[in-house]
């Protein structure tokens, strides 16, 4: 009898302590299943080197990128200070009016090219489910150099070239991200009759994080139309993140930065040591801040 009593008492006493261990489970239940959040920060920058990534600046955020590509490393390196005396540059500013859209303008030294570009995010990689992020990228490029080829009649439209790109990116792990970017570039005017107006290629890129704020990157662009004198661009770099800035330092055989030039018309060759130092420096500006959570009144 007394045994039974003690058994019951033990059960009774155990109940509240059960409840105690339950407390965290109860909170889990109250919070509901954690929403499968999209995978963030597949890449540190919106570009790897020249190749676009699946990243867009956040909604309401503008981004300034200042890029330099110096002269060849091997040509009179002392005289030209490793190429630093002869720089190509590109300036761009973009803005994201929505989390899925980024639009921007750029100006590159090569062919004195102005460009307008847009990035549209269709799909984001999810922690569970969707395995890749899918982004479409477009640029319209205006070559503003003097026409000096002796042809008497030239049209404004001859100056235009367009790039269309689909970016498929995947963050495999915290450290490793890879992307594939099938691309077509349309030139309204090509150099020779042998050159097609539509030229196809695909970009391959990746990054490997060394620390939270440092990553190795590489990109390669394969062309299907391969005229003599041009090479596939291959670049390798280092990303450094410092709060609001991302510094990207790299070595590449591509010296031009506007899409029609760097993708299909890279004259430099790794084999001949025609390599260039370069950097991209990005800085973001918040034009429209996200809504903060409302403080509740407890008194």
């Amino acid at each position: 009898m007394a045994h039974r009593f003690f058994a019951l008492l033990l059960v009774a006493l155990a109940l509240p302590s059960f409840a105690q261990d339950d407390l965290m489970n109860l909170l889990d239940a109250a919070q509901g299943p954690v929403k499968k959040s999209p995978v963030a920060a597949t890449f540190k920058g919106t570009r790897i080197v020249n190749l676009q990534t699946n990243e867009l600046p956040a909604s309401g955020v503008g981004q300034l990128i200042i890029s330099h590509r110096f002269g060849t490393i091997v040509e009179r390196p002392l005289y030209n200070f490793g190429g630093l005396d002869v720089a190509q540059m590109r300036l761009e500013y973009s803005y994201s009016p929505a989390h899925w859209l980024n639009v921007g303008l750029g100006r590159s030294s090569a062919n004195k090219t102005y460009d307008a570009f847009a990035k549209v995010r269709f799909v984001r990689q999810k922690e569970e489910g969707m395995p890749v992020s899918v982004v479409y990228y477009h640029s319209t490029n205006l070559n503003t150099t003097d026409f000096n080829d002796g042809v008497p009649q030239r049209y404004f439209t001859d100056r235009l070239a367009y790039a269309h790109q689909l970016i498929l990116a995947r963050k495999h792990s915290d450290a490793l991200s890879l992307e594939l970017a099938p691309t077509v570039v349309h030139y309204n005017l090509v150099a020779t009759p042998a050159d097609p107006n539509d030229q196809y290629g695909f970009g391959l890129g990746g990054r490997y994080k060394l620390t939270d704020r440092m990553a190795l990157t590489a990109e390669y662009f394969a062309r299907f139309h391969r005229p003599a004198g041009f090479y596939d661009p291959l670049s390798m770099g280092l990303d450094l993140e410092t709060g609001g800035h991302v510094f990207q330092f790299h070595i590449s055989n591509a010296r031009f930065m506007n899409d029609p030039s760097w993708m299909m018309q890279t004259p430099g060759s790794w084999g001949k040591g025609e390599l260039y130092f370069g950097f991209n420096l990005s800085r973001v500006f918040t034009h429209r801040a996200p809504k903060m959570a409302k403080e509740i009144d407890v008194l």
Binding site: A40, A41, P57, A58, S59, G60, V61, D212, R213, E241, G243, G244, V284, T286, A289, P290, K291, M292, A293
Partner: peptide
């Protein structure tokens, strides 16, 4: 939520 989206990313990532 942070005032700057990049801070939020860094807060989570780094």
């Amino acid at each position: 939520t942070f005032e700057k989206a990049l801070m939020q990313e860094h807060f989570n990532e780094n």
